[in-house]
Lab assay of single mutants.
Amino acid sequence: KKKREHFRQLLDETSAITLTSTWKEVKKIIKEDPRCIKFSSSDRKKQREFEEYIRD
């Protein structure tokens, strides 16, 4: 659960993310961040979390 919170925090702090951002764009920006790396090695899982984040 904590990894998820850190991942969401990373998304919060990434000012380039807007409601129209695509995962492909965002992934390029955040892929080097340790919170992104630690969250999951599964790209699909990160994408799902990102899409949920955008909906919230």
Rank of each mutant, 00 (worst) to 15 (best):
K2F: 13
K2W: 00
K3S: 10
K3A: 06
K3L: 11
R4F: 07
R4P: 07
R4N: 03
H6A: 15
H6F: 09
F7N: 05
F7S: 05
F7R: 02
R8C: 03
R8M: 02
L10S: 05
L10Y: 04
L11E: 00
L11D: 09
D12L: 04
D12F: 02
E13V: 02
E13N: 03
E13T: 05
E13W: 09
E13K: 03
T14Q: 10
T14F: 15
T14P: 00
S15H: 05
A16C: 14
A16H: 15
I17Q: 01
T18P: 04
L19M: 12
T20G: 11
S21M: 07
S21L: 01
S21A: 06
S21P: 03
S21D: 02
T22N: 13
T22S: 13
T22K: 07
T22G: 03
T22Y: 00
W23Q: 10
W23S: 05
K24S: 14
K24V: 12
E25T: 02
E25V: 02
V26S: 02
V26Q: 04
V26Y: 06
V26P: 01
V26A: 07
K27N: 01
K27H: 06
K28D: 12
K28N: 15
I29C: 10
I29Q: 09
K31L: 07
K31T: 11
K31Q: 13
K31P: 03
E32Q: 05
E32F: 07
D33R: 00
P34T: 13
P34H: 03
P34V: 06
P34S: 07
R35C: 02
R35Y: 01
R35A: 01
R35G: 03
R35M: 05
C36Q: 04
C36E: 07
C36H: 03
I37T: 09
I37F: 02
K38V: 10
F39I: 04
F39V: 03
F39C: 05
F39M: 06
S41I: 08
S41Y: 09
S41C: 09
S41A: 12
S41T: 11
D43W: 07
D43Q: 08
D43I: 14
D43E: 11
R44E: 14
R44A: 15
R44C: 12
R44I: 12
R44L: 11
K45H: 04
K46L: 14
K46C: 15
K46Y: 06
K46P: 04
Q47R: 11
Q47I: 00
Q47E: 10
Q47H: 05
Q47S: 08
Q47A: 10
R48L: 15
R48D: 14
E51K: 04
E51F: 03
E51D: 13
E52A: 15
E52N: 12
E52Y: 13
E52Q: 15
I54V: 14
R55W: 04
